[in-house]
Design a protein around this nucleic acid. Structure first.
Lengths: 115, 115
DNA sequence: CCGCATCCGATTGGATACTG
DNA sequence: CAGTATCCAATCGGATGCGG
């Protein structure tokens, strides 16, 4: 596979590269994914770990990830209300991409990080 | 490397993941990179291959890539004026990332949506 | 505790016309 | 041929207050 194998003349939503980009699109998205890669977390836990992320954007990100079926939301009964977010199998499928992003970024910075 | 190894609490420019995301940021960027992965190309050749990409955005992308030293511009003497754009070694370093984007996107499209 | 509604400034990408 | 200059609509992300 010499390159990204593309032949499209413009960014089309069904191009695989665009699909992957859409999955991680938006500021904070990769950080939210990283947190969920550690295991399921509640809305508040995510806020604690990403304190400067506003509730609006966090909700937007979670909704987008949920719509793409990368994340599942689970309402937990009890008091106070709690919601747990966790990765789906599809969400887990993004792990190699995040690793590759890290590896590539580290290489660009000058480090010889290999993954 | 179990995850993206991150510890940052917000998107910081020096986080490797952010570095990589910045390198491919912006609509059309991955398509421009893909074209250059085939080999050097002139401004006009890029326009021909990406006909609906406006001159302004193409120039912006090329400038950004050049600033990050992923692409080199070379002015060719002669008439008419020609400019050749080519990948640097750093630019070539993005190839595995593009491949991974393709691979991941293809998996998401083809894979089922199991929880 | 969870998350939506609203407002707002900044950035983006596209169209188009023009210049060296 | 290889860009730059301008304008503009749309989107984005952040702040904040309110509702379930």
């Amino acid at each position: 596979m010499p390159d990204a194998r593309g032949r499209t003349a413009r960014p089309e939503a069904d191009c695989p590269v665009e699909v992957a980009l859409a999955a991680i699109a938006g500021r904070w998205t990769t950080l939210v994914m990283r947190e969920l890669m550690h295991g399921p977390a509640s809305y508040g836990e995510l806020r604690d770990r990403l304190p400067t992320l506003s509730p609006k954007v966090l909700a937007e990100r979670l909704r987008a990830l949920e719509e793409r079926e990368l994340v599942v939301r689970e309402r937990l009964v009890g008091f106070p209300v709690r919601t747990s977010y966790g990765l789906t199998a599809r969400g887990e499928a993004l792990r190699p991409l995040l690793v590759e992003l890290y590896r590539t970024g580290a290489a660009l910075r000058g480090g010889g990080a290999s993954g």
